[in-house]
Amino acid sequence: MPLLHLIAPSGDPQDQDAVARAVDYFQEKGWQVKGQSSALRHFQRFAGTDDERAAELNALTKYAQPEFKDSKPDLVMALRGGYGLSRILDRIDFDGLAAADLVFIGHSDFTAFTLAYYALTGKASYSGPMTCFDFGADSPSSFTQHHFWELLGAGIDAIKVRVAQPYQFKTEGMLWGGNLTMVSQLVGSRYLPEVKDGILFLEDINEHPYRIERAIYQLREAGILTQQRAMILGQFNGYKLYENDAGYDFDEMVKHLRSRIDIPLLTDLPFGHVRDKLTLPVGRVAQLDVRQDDGYVLSYGRI
């Protein structure tokens, strides 16, 4: 019986019913679930104190020991994002987690973990659905479920985005990225991986287009974009435009960036803070086939 281990390294789970629904969901799929008690921790806006959240992650290093290997979880999933990993990155035993050979999944604030895990150990993980919002929903997205189980089961997955793009090319490269705020926060630190010839995917929520543009300029000025084969944007929803924007919106921002950066900038990849999301490997080579008016296809395999 496969084992799912739940962790809460960031924000307060808030909705205990959603956690219970997610546990039921996986148990009905034939999985054993551990770690539900992490949903009971509360400290200010966090799922426990910094000490508690760091200790929860570091306790997983025990699976590197021979006596625990038979009970090692098949997947470790974050309950939710929010904020909190930035406070404990320097307290996480990444080498110990890598020795345990664990597979992690999450998005939003969990981007900080997946990028640091890859940067410090070379270990891949997943940017994908989480416990509360996704599998704990009253009616989980069929799209999210399909791509999650397809990748974990068949071992390969692909998405065809039927939105026209002003490019035509084929390439492959290391797939990496996640939440834009967390990626830009890690610039200049040891927690951001140095990826060359990569395919960088980015998304965010509640960020005005000018903030998105500013963060992407930071990546350009840091020399990160020039090392990538392509950058793919997801959805950037939840923001509010103002009267003084005077026509400056997300589409205008994309148009401007395409005139100022030297790599292809694609749009509309479904992942992150949306109901219908992909499960994307962070730290695995992917194939990208861009077909202009016919959109593009992104193909990749499991960890």
Rank of each mutant, 00 (worst) to 15 (best):
M1C: 07
L3K: 14
L4D: 13
H5F: 04
A8P: 00
A8N: 06
A20C: 01
V23E: 09
D24C: 01
K29D: 14
K29Y: 05
W31I: 08
S38A: 11
H42I: 14
Q44W: 04
A55T: 12
A59L: 10
L60I: 05
L60D: 09
K69W: 02
K69P: 02
P73L: 11
L75M: 11
R80Q: 14
G81Q: 04
R87G: 00
L89W: 10
D93V: 05
L97Q: 08
L97A: 05
A98V: 07
A99E: 15
A99S: 08
H107T: 15
D109G: 02
A112W: 01
F113H: 08
A116M: 10
Y118D: 09
A119D: 11
G122F: 13
C132M: 04
D134L: 12
D134S: 08
G136I: 12
H147A: 04
F148N: 05
E150Y: 02
L151Q: 08
G153R: 00
A154D: 11
D157L: 03
A158Y: 07
R162T: 13
P166D: 15
Y167I: 11
F169L: 09
T171N: 07
G173C: 09
W176D: 08
Q185A: 12
Q185G: 01
Q185R: 14
L186S: 02
P193I: 13
V195C: 01
K196L: 03
G198A: 05
D204N: 03
E207R: 01
P209W: 10
R211S: 06
Y217F: 14
Q218S: 11
Q218V: 11
E221T: 07
T226C: 08
A230N: 09
I232V: 15
L233G: 03
Y239F: 13
E243K: 06
M253L: 07
L257R: 05
R260C: 10
I261Q: 11
I263H: 03
L265Q: 07
L265S: 07
T267N: 06
F271Y: 10
F271N: 06
K277T: 13
T279M: 15
L280I: 14
P281M: 15
G283Y: 05
D294Q: 14
S299C: 01
G301Q: 15
R302P: 01
